[in-house]
Design a protein around this nucleic acid. Structure first.
Length: 241
DNA sequence: CGCCTTTGACCCGCGC
DNA sequence: GCGCGGGTCAAAGGCG
């Protein structure tokens, strides 16, 4: 998937537990840019590409890359804001919220599991189509620092994507419902998403994409809110057990 | 000819 | 100390 940056491949390995090789890339845009990324197909669903970014660019980014960076940063801020308001006072995000999201990711839609020890954010890029980058949907994050694409502390950014024309499909409807329920439960979440979309609109010329995304985030769950909340509680209990 | 990818070798951390 | 696995290096080959 093109992300606006130029990458130079420097290695490929077959990781244990996944027959698909993992490719290693370095950013080739700046002089001695420290940013690296890993790309690997999901072992469960080979249409899913798991891309891991590490480091921070030491050069300016093209508009497309900036859009991704700002989007990711906004997503991180969104989840981070929840962590700072959590009642237990921890620096990590609301465990109930993330357990719900992680459980939805385990349905084969985006089979990636962020660990608490590694700062990560997982984004669903399945809305990518017509070779035009669109706004990714944040699935989960336990990252403690936003990604701006400029020198900061070392960090890792995890992105997952599917090939075009793969959705909407039944397998990820559950995720949509969970996200919708999360938005319905927390008005601040919807406000954060609106801010992200508004920010993206300034960077993109594709107004149609914007409209599509706004409709994607419309908090009108296909199920009643009571049913969704019950499922979330059930999911939380099963994970905790 | 230069750039990029491929791929086997090597390095290093971690668990036993 | 040894083996395993992940990450990186670098020579060789392909391609424009």
């Amino acid at each position: 998937m093109g992300d606006g940056c130029q990458w130079r491949k420097y290695g490929q390995k077959i990781a244990k537990g996944n027959p698909c090789p993992r490719a290693y890339y370095r950013c080739n845009m700046g002089t001695s840019c420290p940013v690296r990324k890993q790309v690997q197909r999901c072992a469960v669903d080979e249409t899913v590409l798991i891309t891991t970014y590490e480091g921070n660019h030491n050069h300016s980014l093209p508009p497309t890359a900036k859009s991704i960076a700002s989007t990711t940063s906004a997503a991180l801020d969104m989840f981070l804001s929840r962590s700072t308001t959590s009642s237990n006072g921890t620096t990590l995000s609301n465990p109930s919220f993330f357990s719900s999201l992680s459980s939805s990711a385990s349905t084969g839609f985006a089979t990636f599991y962020p660990s608490a020890s590694c700062p990560t954010v997982t984004l669903d890029l399945t809305q990518n189509s017509n070779n035009c980058f669109q706004f990714p949907r944040a699935i989960s994050s336990n990252h403690l620092q936003p990604f701006h694409g400029y020198p900061q502390q070392s960090e890792a950014l995890y992105l997952s994507s599917k090939l075009p024309n793969m959705i909407p499909s039944e397998e990820n409807l559950g995720l949509v419902e969970v996200i919708s329920a999360a938005i319905a439960k927390d008005p601040s979440l919807k406000a954060a998403l609106d801010a992200v979309v508004s920010s993206l609109t300034r960077d993109t010329q594709n107004i149609n994409n914007h409209c599509q995304l706004r409709s994607e985030y419309d908090p009108s769950p296909k199920m009643s809110e009571e049913v969704v909340q019950h499922q979330l509680c059930t999911t939380d209990e099963s994970i905790q057990s």
